[in-house]
Amino acid sequence: MRHLLAAVLLSMLSVLSVPAAAQPSRYLISASPMTGTPPGTQAWRVQYWTMNGSGQRLAVTGIVAAPMEAIPPRPRRVIAWTHGAWGVAEECAPSLSPSFFEYSAGMDAVRSGYVVVAPDYIGLGSPTMHPFLVGPDTANSVLDAVRAAREIPGAAAGSRFAVWGESQGGHAALWTATAAQAYAPDLTLVATAAAAPPTDLGANLREGSDKNARALLLSFALHSWSTLYGFSLDPIANRTNQGIIRRLSENNCVAFNKKPKLGTILGILTIARATKGKDIEKIEPFGSFERANSVDPARVPGPLLIAQSSRDTIVAPSVTRKFAKAVCRRGTALRWIDMTGDHGASARDSAQETIGWITARFDGSPPPSDCRRL
């Protein structure tokens, strides 16, 4: 009888002492350790569950990085890094790129002790169309990435997080801040930072001064939205140019360190000519969809940091400044960083100041506001 009782007690103790890693994961599907990471950094390629705006459950991918140190007694602070436009094709996922760390400014925060969670978003690295600049879908994938990171024992990620992104990722960061409380009440948003964020999609796709970049980004948006939601491209382009839009989107990822192919250049020039003078915002259902996925300044909680270059040729500085002024009218504490570099360097040029500002928010310092000088 004593032996039976001891066996029962031993069985009970073994169940009670099962480590967290052995418990069923709610969000994390897999976490594969990466090699060749920057000094002092450990990282995992992850697959995790999220939901799109229609409530469909999807498996998506990303990267989680943390300091190469012993697990601290308290959970680590978390930054969700939301990347800029890499493309809309499955193979354009940042986590698949050998240049991921080089071109992901948010990874700099690992050196300051943060866990950095870098989702690919839906459809990049996973077999479904990427919902390009679709706010709710993107926000869900970011918030669920933070949740998944918390299920990696070696990351030691806490529930308090900041979100920081550039370009398309600035739009993602602002939408994540808007959705965080309702979608992920188990997480606590501490701060939001956006470098060169598209806010008013109609104005951004219309007013960027680089017409070729505008044509490529418009192609990404049109291909994504027509594929996902069945929007007809007939009011925008003829059949030949619709084929060019599809090929530009399916065959091109944004090239950071090499020139685009001749066919890509010719395709972009063709679409730039074909869409010249066409205001997509006035063509339905695209106009309504642009407005629905623009960022409402009244819904973005503070504290907020925006970094914007006055020489940005892709995200019009005037559009960003107008958004910032609207945020200020709501009484939200806003830090504004003026820069003069090109669009692609927005996050890198403001990284040191942004990480310092985020750290001060985690530390509980009152947020500064630049609203008066705006």
Rank of each mutant, 00 (worst) to 15 (best):
N212Y: 14
G165R: 07
G202P: 01
L304R: 11
G344Q: 00
P366A: 11
P24A: 06
A316K: 13
N140W: 09
D279G: 00
P127V: 15
K322V: 10
K282R: 09
T359F: 05
L124R: 00
R2V: 14
N257F: 03
R372M: 10
P67V: 12
K322F: 07
A193R: 04
A326V: 05
Q47Y: 03
N212E: 12
I306E: 01
L28Q: 03
R311Q: 07
A272H: 05
P235W: 12
G55W: 13
G331N: 11
P303G: 03
G208R: 12
G154Y: 13
F256D: 01
L10N: 00
Y103V: 00
I337L: 09
L218S: 14
S219A: 12
I306K: 03
G36S: 01
G263F: 06
A203F: 07
A20D: 08
G341Q: 01
G277E: 14
F362D: 07
L96A: 13
D186V: 02
A179G: 02
S32V: 15
P33Q: 14
N204M: 08
N257E: 02
R111P: 00
S294M: 05
D296Y: 03
D210R: 03
S219D: 06
P235K: 11
R330T: 06
A215K: 05
L205Q: 05
S232Q: 05
K259W: 03
L16G: 06
A316L: 14
A182D: 11
L222F: 08
M129L: 13
T41E: 02
S288T: 15
E102V: 00
L218E: 10
T178I: 14
L143V: 05
A145I: 13
L124G: 00
S209H: 10
P94L: 01
A80D: 02
R329A: 15
F220N: 02
W81T: 04
A194R: 08
L187N: 07
L133A: 02
P136L: 10
T41G: 01
H3P: 10
A203R: 07
D144I: 12
Q56N: 04
R147I: 11
R361M: 15
F101P: 02
L201Y: 11
R330S: 11
R26H: 13
V134H: 03
A155W: 11
S159E: 10
T37K: 00
T340K: 15
R311H: 08
A195I: 12
R26N: 06
P38K: 01
S97W: 05
I283N: 09
R45T: 09
L217S: 06
A215S: 04
G263Q: 05
M68F: 12
S32E: 01
L16Y: 06
A177Y: 09
S112T: 08
G302D: 13
E290I: 15
R150L: 10
I306S: 00
S346G: 08
D279S: 09
G36D: 04
G356K: 02
G106Y: 13
S11N: 12
H130G: 01
A80T: 02
T340L: 08
T50R: 00
D349Q: 03
R45P: 02
G84A: 04
A326H: 04
F101C: 06
Q181V: 07
P39A: 01
I236K: 00
S318H: 08
M339L: 11
C328I: 14
S17L: 14
G84Y: 00
A237D: 07
